[in-house]
Write a protein that binds this DNA or RNA. Structure first.
Length: 362
DNA sequence: CACACGTGGAT
DNA sequence: TATCCAAGTGT
């Protein structure tokens, strides 16, 4: 007997589960709040969705609160200094998101009177908003019946229908299935419910199928091991790249920093001088690659894993007079390094040269 | 379609 | 330790 779920049954089942078991999140209007007349703030929903791209809820919470405190409205963010936005985003990763966040805020403030477009199409035309985020903001903030497909939903749907096509080829099929399931009533809650289900019940490993509202209808559970869905190709292994980083300190306990170019890896972020990061094992990562002459002391190496390569950086430290550096950067007190737009890899390098650089006592 | 693009937590 | 992966987007 075919127990495949029908569109008419899916939403009520899932929304009933969501009303009882939804997560409380800082940017979310819970069902009980909605009953009291609270409506979603599109600025908050957009901000959270951009931060949540490939990023855990846990990591996002503090950044979300910080950004709202610094820039309470989209006009505030549009008027902010680019550099301040990059400083506030430092540590969250995927820094193109921060650059696009600022551009998007400027576009909304300048071209849309400070109001986000309320359609998928309008939203998707903005920087940093793609298929997923456009659908999510349209559904959650504007109650549009849009098909929201993220990693969680892909997992839920792939199991519900035991989809054998591997990702990402299966995405169009999955989007069609989600579109068929999405209700006209509470489409935003439906989307959030699918994501909550994927995050808390239909998890990548050891899913809690006994607690799942879709359990009677899940094809993967009935015919196979749900854990094996979604199918996806194996990832390539990461090559190793080598480089050197030079931490120059002057007599007043300040460090020489530079700003990276606006595009590419860590674009627009702050760094210490260093070599290019080469895949060549014979690249010069020795003190000979120094950016300026000094009595460089070998501080050992640090490792950092990026999305598509692993980096091993040789770190050097020296006491340097201000006049001996170039003029492509600036001197920053060690005590204020924490507030700089330093990506994690640079904080690691500096901490290797100055172990207490980021300690609270400073 | 394939690849570039960060980081930290879980197993 | 190795691997996966978390509310993806841009090119």
């Amino acid at each position: 007997m075919d127990n495949t779920i029908t569109a008419a049954k899916a939403a009520p089942l899932l929304l009933e589960w969501y009303d009882r078991h939804h997560r409380e999140l800082p940017w979310r209007v819970s069902p009980s709040m909605a009953r009291q007349g609270v409506v979603a703030n599109p600025y908050h929903i957009w901000m959270s969705e951009v931060m949540l791209q490939q990023t855990t809820v846990q990591a996002v919470k503090a950044y979300f609160e910080k950004f709202l405190a610094l820039w309470p409205s989209v006009e505030d963010l549009a008027a902010a200094d680019n550099e301040d936005v990059m400083k506030a985003w430092a540590g969250l990763g995927y820094y193109a998101r921060a650059r696009n966040l600022k551009k998007c805020a400027e576009a909304v403030a300048r071209n849309h009177g400070g109001h986000f477009p309320d359609t998928e199409e309008g939203l998707k035309a903005l920087p940093g908003i793609g298929d997923y985020t456009a659908a999510a903001v349209a559904a959650i903030a504007f109650n549009r019946q849009s098909a929201v497909l993220d990693g969680n939903v892909e997992r839920v749907v792939s199991r519900l229908y035991a989809i054998e096509t591997p990702l990402p080829a299966a995405k169009p099929e999955m989007r069609g299935l989600v579109a068929a399931l999405t209700p006209a009533d509470r489409p935003g809650d439906f989307a959030q419910a699918m994501m909550d289900l994927g995050a808390t019940i239909c998890t990548p490993k050891r899913p809690a199928c006994s607690l799942c509202p879709f359990r009677p209808h899940c094809l993967a559970l009935s015919v196979a091991d749900p854990e094996t869905f979604p199918r996806k190709a194996k990832k390539k292994d990461k090559p190793l790249r080598l480089g050197a980083a030079f931490v120059a300190i002057d007599a007043r306990d300040t460090v020489y920093l530079r700003k990276r170019g606006e595009t590419g890896l860590l674009g627009g972020m702050t760094e210490v001088p260093g070599t290019a990061w080469t895949a060549r094992q014979d690249g010069d990562t020795s003190v000979a690659a120094q950016p300026f002459a000094a009595a460089w002391e070998d501080c050992g190496t640090i490792s950092h894993v990026f999305t598509h390569f692993e980096l091993r950086l040789s770190v050097y430290r020296a006491n340097v007079a201000r006049a001996e550096t170039g003029d492509d950067g600036w001197w920053e007190p060690v005590s204020s390094l924490k507030a700089q737009a330093l990506p994690t890899v640079m904080k690691k390098a500096i901490a290797q040269a100055i172990p207490d650089a980021f300690k609270a006592e400073r």
